[in-house]
Design a protein around this nucleic acid. Structure first.
Lengths: 121, 121
DNA sequence: TATCGATATATCGCATGACGATACATTAGC
DNA sequence: GCTAATGTATCGTCATGCGATATATCGATA
Protein backbone atom coordinates (compact mmCIF):
# COMPACT_ATOMS: atom_id res chain seq x y z
CA UNK A 1 0.00 0.00 0.00
CA UNK A 2 1.11 3.52 -0.77
CA UNK A 3 2.69 5.44 2.09
CA UNK A 4 0.08 7.90 3.34
CA UNK A 5 1.50 11.37 4.00
CA UNK A 6 -0.51 13.52 6.36
CA UNK A 7 -1.32 16.90 4.98
CA UNK A 8 -0.78 20.15 6.86
CA UNK A 9 -3.79 21.33 8.81
CA UNK A 10 -5.92 23.65 6.72
CA UNK A 11 -5.69 26.50 9.21
CA UNK A 12 -1.95 26.50 8.74
CA UNK A 13 -2.44 27.13 5.03
CA UNK A 14 -4.67 30.14 5.45
CA UNK A 15 -2.91 33.28 4.38
CA UNK A 16 -0.14 31.49 2.52
CA UNK A 17 -1.92 29.66 -0.30
CA UNK A 18 -2.23 32.94 -2.23
CA UNK A 19 1.49 33.36 -1.85
CA UNK A 20 2.23 29.90 -3.25
CA UNK A 21 0.00 30.42 -6.27
CA UNK A 22 1.52 33.82 -7.02
CA UNK A 23 5.01 32.35 -6.70
CA UNK A 24 4.17 29.58 -9.18
CA UNK A 25 2.68 32.07 -11.64
CA UNK A 26 5.66 34.36 -11.28
CA UNK A 27 7.79 31.62 -12.82
CA UNK A 28 5.52 30.95 -15.80
CA UNK A 29 1.92 31.20 -16.96
CA UNK A 30 -0.14 28.17 -15.95
CA UNK A 31 -3.66 26.84 -15.64
CA UNK A 32 -5.35 25.79 -12.42
CA UNK A 33 -4.96 22.07 -12.62
CA UNK A 34 -1.20 22.32 -13.11
CA UNK A 35 -0.73 24.97 -10.41
CA UNK A 36 -2.49 22.64 -8.02
CA UNK A 37 -0.33 19.73 -9.14
CA UNK A 38 2.92 21.68 -8.92
CA UNK A 39 2.20 22.79 -5.38
CA UNK A 40 1.18 19.28 -4.39
CA UNK A 41 4.33 17.73 -5.80
CA UNK A 42 6.72 20.43 -4.63
CA UNK A 43 5.38 20.00 -1.10
CA UNK A 44 5.77 16.24 -1.11
CA UNK A 45 1.96 15.76 -1.14
CA UNK A 46 1.69 17.75 2.09
CA UNK A 47 -0.14 20.65 0.48
CA UNK A 48 -2.86 19.22 -1.74
CA UNK A 49 -5.48 21.88 -2.36
CA UNK A 50 -8.81 20.55 -3.51
CA UNK A 51 -10.43 21.98 -6.61
CA UNK A 52 -12.93 23.63 -4.28
CA UNK A 53 -10.04 25.59 -2.83
CA UNK A 54 -8.03 26.20 -6.00
CA UNK A 55 -10.62 27.68 -8.33
CA UNK A 56 -12.29 30.10 -5.95
CA UNK A 57 -8.78 31.22 -4.95
CA UNK A 58 -7.87 31.94 -8.57
CA UNK A 59 -11.14 33.82 -9.09
CA UNK A 60 -10.41 35.88 -6.00
CA UNK A 61 -6.89 36.75 -7.14
CA UNK A 62 -8.25 37.69 -10.54
CA UNK A 63 -10.91 39.86 -8.91
CA UNK A 64 -8.11 41.67 -7.13
CA UNK A 65 -6.32 42.12 -10.48
CA UNK A 66 -3.28 40.24 -9.19
CA UNK A 67 -3.58 37.74 -12.02
CA UNK A 68 -5.41 37.72 -15.34
CA UNK A 69 -6.89 34.84 -17.33
CA UNK A 70 -7.36 33.68 -20.89
CA UNK A 71 -9.32 30.66 -22.13
CA UNK A 72 -7.63 28.18 -24.41
CA UNK A 73 -10.06 26.10 -26.44
CA UNK A 74 -7.58 25.09 -29.14
CA UNK A 75 -7.20 21.59 -27.70
CA UNK A 76 -10.05 19.28 -26.76
CA UNK A 77 -9.64 20.29 -23.13
CA UNK A 78 -10.83 23.69 -22.08
CA UNK A 79 -8.06 25.34 -20.11
CA UNK A 80 -8.02 28.70 -18.37
CA UNK A 81 -4.51 30.06 -18.35
CA UNK A 82 -3.43 32.53 -15.73
CA UNK A 83 -0.66 35.13 -15.79
CA UNK A 84 0.60 37.28 -12.95
CA UNK A 85 0.13 41.05 -13.30
CA UNK A 86 2.41 43.88 -12.19
CA UNK A 87 0.18 44.35 -9.16
CA UNK A 88 0.49 40.62 -8.54
CA UNK A 89 4.26 40.78 -8.47
CA UNK A 90 4.13 43.69 -6.10
CA UNK A 91 1.79 41.75 -3.85
CA UNK A 92 4.00 38.67 -4.07
CA UNK A 93 7.02 40.63 -2.86
CA UNK A 94 5.03 42.19 -0.06
CA UNK A 95 3.46 38.94 1.08
CA UNK A 96 6.72 37.02 0.89
CA UNK A 97 8.32 39.69 3.01
CA UNK A 98 5.42 39.46 5.46
CA UNK A 99 5.81 35.70 5.60
CA UNK A 100 9.53 35.93 6.31
CA UNK A 101 8.87 38.38 9.10
CA UNK A 102 6.24 36.12 10.56
CA UNK A 103 8.56 33.12 10.51
CA UNK A 104 11.20 35.13 12.35
CA UNK A 105 8.61 36.34 14.81
CA UNK A 106 7.49 32.79 15.53
CA UNK A 107 11.12 31.79 15.90
CA UNK A 108 11.44 34.30 18.73
CA UNK A 109 8.17 33.31 20.35
CA UNK A 110 8.78 29.60 20.10
CA UNK A 111 12.27 29.73 21.53
CA UNK A 112 13.35 26.16 22.18
CA UNK A 113 10.70 24.58 19.98
CA UNK A 114 11.94 26.27 16.87
CA UNK A 115 14.49 24.59 14.67
CA UNK A 116 16.10 26.88 12.09
CA UNK A 117 15.62 25.98 8.46
CA UNK A 118 18.77 24.57 6.88
CA UNK A 119 20.68 27.01 4.69
CA UNK A 120 19.74 26.92 1.03
CA UNK A 121 22.41 26.47 -1.61
CA UNK B 1 3.29 60.49 17.65
CA UNK B 2 3.92 56.83 18.42
CA UNK B 3 5.35 54.76 15.61
CA UNK B 4 2.51 52.60 14.29
CA UNK B 5 3.52 49.00 13.63
CA UNK B 6 1.28 47.10 11.24
CA UNK B 7 0.10 43.82 12.59
CA UNK B 8 0.29 40.54 10.72
CA UNK B 9 -2.82 39.69 8.73
CA UNK B 10 -5.21 37.59 10.75
CA UNK B 11 -5.19 34.76 8.22
CA UNK B 12 -1.47 34.37 8.77
CA UNK B 13 -2.12 33.76 12.46
CA UNK B 14 -4.66 31.02 11.99
CA UNK B 15 -3.35 27.70 13.14
CA UNK B 16 -0.41 29.16 15.01
CA UNK B 17 -2.00 31.18 17.82
CA UNK B 18 -2.68 27.97 19.76
CA UNK B 19 0.96 27.14 19.42
CA UNK B 20 2.07 30.50 20.82
CA UNK B 21 -0.23 30.24 23.81
CA UNK B 22 0.89 26.69 24.59
CA UNK B 23 4.52 27.77 24.31
CA UNK B 24 3.98 30.62 26.78
CA UNK B 25 2.18 28.31 29.22
CA UNK B 26 4.90 25.70 28.91
CA UNK B 27 7.31 28.19 30.45
CA UNK B 28 5.08 29.10 33.40
CA UNK B 29 1.46 29.27 34.54
CA UNK B 30 -0.23 32.49 33.49
CA UNK B 31 -3.58 34.20 33.13
CA UNK B 32 -5.10 35.44 29.91
CA UNK B 33 -4.31 39.10 30.11
CA UNK B 34 -0.61 38.43 30.64
CA UNK B 35 -0.40 35.75 27.96
CA UNK B 36 -1.86 38.25 25.53
CA UNK B 37 0.61 40.90 26.68
CA UNK B 38 3.61 38.59 26.50
CA UNK B 39 2.83 37.57 22.95
CA UNK B 40 2.21 41.16 21.95
CA UNK B 41 5.50 42.36 23.41
CA UNK B 42 7.57 39.40 22.27
CA UNK B 43 6.33 39.97 18.72
CA UNK B 44 7.14 43.66 18.75
CA UNK B 45 3.43 44.58 18.72
CA UNK B 46 2.96 42.63 15.49
CA UNK B 47 0.80 39.94 17.07
CA UNK B 48 -1.76 41.65 19.26
CA UNK B 49 -4.68 39.34 19.83
CA UNK B 50 -7.87 41.02 20.93
CA UNK B 51 -9.66 39.80 24.03
CA UNK B 52 -12.31 38.43 21.67
CA UNK B 53 -9.63 36.14 20.25
CA UNK B 54 -7.74 35.31 23.45
CA UNK B 55 -10.51 34.16 25.75
CA UNK B 56 -12.40 31.91 23.34
CA UNK B 57 -9.04 30.41 22.40
CA UNK B 58 -8.25 29.61 26.04
CA UNK B 59 -11.70 28.10 26.51
CA UNK B 60 -11.18 25.96 23.46
CA UNK B 61 -7.79 24.71 24.61
CA UNK B 62 -9.28 23.92 28.01
CA UNK B 63 -12.14 22.06 26.34
CA UNK B 64 -9.54 19.94 24.60
CA UNK B 65 -7.86 19.30 27.97
CA UNK B 66 -4.62 20.83 26.71
CA UNK B 67 -4.66 23.36 29.54
CA UNK B 68 -6.53 23.61 32.83
CA UNK B 69 -7.69 26.63 34.80
CA UNK B 70 -8.08 27.84 38.35
CA UNK B 71 -9.71 31.05 39.55
CA UNK B 72 -7.79 33.36 41.86
CA UNK B 73 -10.03 35.70 43.84
CA UNK B 74 -7.50 36.46 46.56
CA UNK B 75 -6.68 39.88 45.14
CA UNK B 76 -9.21 42.53 44.16
CA UNK B 77 -8.89 41.45 40.56
CA UNK B 78 -10.44 38.16 39.49
CA UNK B 79 -7.86 36.21 37.54
CA UNK B 80 -8.16 32.85 35.84
CA UNK B 81 -4.80 31.10 35.86
CA UNK B 82 -3.99 28.52 33.24
CA UNK B 83 -1.51 25.64 33.33
CA UNK B 84 -0.47 23.35 30.50
CA UNK B 85 -1.36 19.65 30.86
CA UNK B 86 0.61 16.59 29.78
CA UNK B 87 -1.61 16.36 26.71
CA UNK B 88 -0.90 20.03 26.08
CA UNK B 89 2.85 19.46 26.07
CA UNK B 90 2.42 16.57 23.71
CA UNK B 91 0.34 18.76 21.42
CA UNK B 92 2.87 21.58 21.67
CA UNK B 93 5.67 19.30 20.51
CA UNK B 94 3.56 17.96 17.68
CA UNK B 95 2.37 21.37 16.52
CA UNK B 96 5.82 22.92 16.77
CA UNK B 97 7.15 20.09 14.66
CA UNK B 98 4.35 20.63 12.17
CA UNK B 99 5.15 24.33 12.05
CA UNK B 100 8.82 23.70 11.39
CA UNK B 101 7.95 21.32 8.59
CA UNK B 102 5.60 23.86 7.10
CA UNK B 103 8.23 26.59 7.18
CA UNK B 104 10.66 24.31 5.39
CA UNK B 105 8.00 23.38 2.88
CA UNK B 106 7.28 27.03 2.16
CA UNK B 107 11.01 27.62 1.83
CA UNK B 108 11.07 25.09 -0.98
CA UNK B 109 7.97 26.43 -2.66
CA UNK B 110 8.97 30.04 -2.41
CA UNK B 111 12.43 29.54 -3.82
CA UNK B 112 13.90 32.97 -4.44
CA UNK B 113 11.42 34.82 -2.27
CA UNK B 114 12.43 33.01 0.86
CA UNK B 115 15.10 34.44 3.10
CA UNK B 116 16.45 32.05 5.74
CA UNK B 117 15.99 33.04 9.35
CA UNK B 118 19.24 34.19 10.96
CA UNK B 119 20.88 31.67 13.26
CA UNK B 120 19.87 31.94 16.89
CA UNK B 121 22.52 32.30 19.56
C1' DT C 1 -15.31 63.38 43.99
C1' DA C 2 -15.45 62.37 39.48
C1' DT C 3 -13.22 60.87 35.64
C1' DC C 4 -10.02 58.31 33.13
C1' DG C 5 -6.93 54.63 31.83
C1' DA C 6 -5.24 50.19 32.86
C1' DT C 7 -6.43 45.70 34.44
C1' DA C 8 -9.34 41.48 33.81
C1' DT C 9 -12.75 38.28 31.80
C1' DA C 10 -16.64 37.20 28.83
C1' DT C 11 -19.80 36.82 24.83
C1' DC C 12 -21.91 38.18 20.36
C1' DG C 13 -22.23 38.42 15.37
C1' DC C 14 -19.53 39.11 11.21
C1' DA C 15 -16.30 37.99 7.57
C1' DT C 16 -13.04 35.09 5.53
C1' DG C 17 -11.48 31.09 3.32
C1' DA C 18 -10.23 25.95 3.17
C1' DC C 19 -12.85 21.89 2.55
C1' DG C 20 -15.71 17.89 0.77
C1' DA C 21 -19.37 17.00 -2.22
C1' DT C 22 -21.26 17.40 -6.43
C1' DA C 23 -21.68 18.44 -11.29
C1' DC C 24 -20.30 18.22 -15.97
C1' DA C 25 -17.40 17.47 -20.16
C1' DT C 26 -13.39 15.47 -22.59
C1' DT C 27 -9.74 12.10 -23.48
C1' DA C 28 -6.87 7.84 -22.97
C1' DG C 29 -6.30 3.17 -21.81
C1' DC C 30 -8.03 -1.33 -20.82
C1' DG D 1 -18.14 0.18 -22.66
C1' DC D 2 -15.91 1.25 -18.43
C1' DT D 3 -12.75 3.54 -15.62
C1' DA D 4 -9.32 6.86 -14.49
C1' DA D 5 -7.29 11.10 -15.36
C1' DT D 6 -7.86 15.76 -16.95
C1' DG D 7 -10.14 20.25 -16.40
C1' DT D 8 -13.21 23.88 -14.42
C1' DA D 9 -17.00 25.34 -11.45
C1' DT D 10 -20.14 26.08 -7.49
C1' DC D 11 -22.48 24.91 -3.11
C1' DG D 12 -22.98 24.65 1.90
C1' DT D 13 -20.41 23.78 6.04
C1' DC D 14 -17.14 24.70 9.46
C1' DA D 15 -13.53 26.90 12.12
C1' DT D 16 -11.67 30.93 13.93
C1' DG D 17 -9.74 35.76 14.27
C1' DC D 18 -11.85 40.18 14.98
C1' DG D 19 -14.32 44.43 16.60
C1' DA D 20 -17.93 45.72 19.54
C1' DT D 21 -19.93 45.50 23.72
C1' DA D 22 -20.64 44.48 28.68
C1' DT D 23 -19.13 44.35 33.38
C1' DA D 24 -16.15 45.14 37.37
C1' DT D 25 -12.05 46.68 40.07
C1' DC D 26 -8.27 49.75 41.03
C1' DG D 27 -4.91 53.71 40.96
C1' DA D 28 -3.91 58.24 39.51
C1' DT D 29 -5.08 62.84 38.84
C1' DA D 30 -7.70 66.87 38.30
Amino acid sequence: MAKKVDKFESDLLRGSLDLMVLAVLDQEDQYGYIIQKKIREASGEKVSMSAGTMYPLLHRLEGEKLIRSRWDDSTGRRRKWYAITAAGRKRLTKQANQWNQYVQCMAGLMQGYYKPVPKLG
